[in-house]
Design a protein around this nucleic acid. Structure first.
Lengths: 221, 221
DNA sequence: ACGTGTGAACTAATTCACAGCA
DNA sequence: TGCTGTGAATTAGTTCACACGT
């Protein structure tokens, strides 16, 4: 289920805040969703909650860690050294847990050998030679025109999962999983809602509780 | 509908390629979805297609442009000057069409006055003074801790739509629309699928047509 | 009491299948 | 003949509502 990472994040935050136990209602509020949905989702990981009390945050984190394999080792290769590729390499919070950058690839000759973060840009051949075992995940941050070639090269490397930021559908073998993130599409979807007026709200919390203090200084912290 | 930007992109590509007409089957293949879904979606923009022929790419582009308001003017403010904020400012393809960067905001004093792309980083107060009309869209690329404050400040500026990259649910008035993009969550979802083996495929095209030439040189182009 | 776990009801989304028009 | 547009059927996802354990 695609919401497990959300619950994981909230449970971790709860732990950091010193709260040992968290109810489905609290998880729902922090995630902007319905509490029944939270319980349905969590119930299919087994019975983790205690009736009358809620969920133990630590057990919840461990259970979701286990399912997602977040603590396992996930070697990641990035294909495409553009603004976005560079940002991901340097962004705090992207390579967390077991997600570990093992290589950066580009086809542009002038970029080969240059440093991006702590990695050196290389060719697909070079990385294939260098790595003992194939990377698990490939991230595509190339222009759209190069994305399909990059995908095929990543599959050849042994990648089983691809995160594609290029605005292009990828044809890959059926056992390779692809997720698409198209940033310009996100803007267009936002303006669609702004254009056609409001229809319905995703997050019931938002419509129930208006923001607390609009007048308060917000950039001072 | 959230798939309209996808159809827009494909229709535009089709036009650029010199193809004046495109069928639901072609749109479906290029988008990795089902052709019936394409027809259902497009039918509720009115009858744009010609039976026996397909859709006229140019009319399709115009119709979707109209609905999404892509050609209208959309002033955008970015809050948060980190790796991602900088990448978005400089990324080709993010600020296209009517989406126009009108300001960059941060609370970190040392960043104020510095250049990012062609913009100068300023405070929320400064931008409020400077802009004649409120920006339509806000993009949050701050750390999670600062995201809620940034959201409130953006709403105060008059923003009606927010694209939030911070891993945090935002409480905003119900007439403000928020979309969430959590990049580390994307990695976790990918590894979830890799961990629990394959279940079903999203894109039927992928399972029907294996990639054409795995053995071909892919990074040579 | 309180909050989980879950059948049942409901709502939304997808896919089928085909009538109807170019 | 080919492809759209769309009712009908199907499937998925969400929400309700409450029995049950603690």
């Amino acid at each position: 289920m695609a919401r497990l990472p959300l619950y994981l994040r909230i449970a971790e935050e709860s732990l950091r805040a010193g709260t040992a136990t968290i109810s489905s209602e609290e998880l729902a509020r922090a995630g902007g969703i319905n509490s029944a949905k939270v319980r349905k989702d969590l119930s299919l990981l087994g019975s983790l909650g205690t009736r009358g009390t809620g969920y133990d945050a630590a057990s919840l984190v461990m259970a979701i860690d286990e399912i997602l394999g977040v603590t396992r080792d996930w070697p990641v290769v990035i294909a495409g050294v553009g603004n976005l590729g560079r940002a991901l390499v340097n962004a705090r919070g992207f390579f967390t847990g077991g997600y570990r950058l093992v290589g950066i690839v580009d086809t542009e000759p002038s970029l080969l050998g240059t440093m991006v973060g702590t990695s050196i840009v290389e060719t697909f051949e070079a990385i294939e030679q260098r790595l003992a075992s194939p990377p698990a995940i490939g991230v595509i941050t190339t222009p759209a025109e190069a994305a399909q070639d990059a995908a095929q090269a990543l599959v050849r490397l042994g990648v089983r999962s691809i995160l594609n930021f290029a605005p292009r559908f990828l044809e890959v073998p059926s056992d390779v999983h692809v997720r698409y993130v198209d940033l310009s599409m996100e803007l267009q979807i936002l303006s669609y809602h702004a254009t056609l007026g409001r229809e319905d709200e995703q997050h019931d919390v938002a419509s129930v509780s208006p923001i607390r203090s609009v007048a308060s200084k917000v950039q001072g912290s």
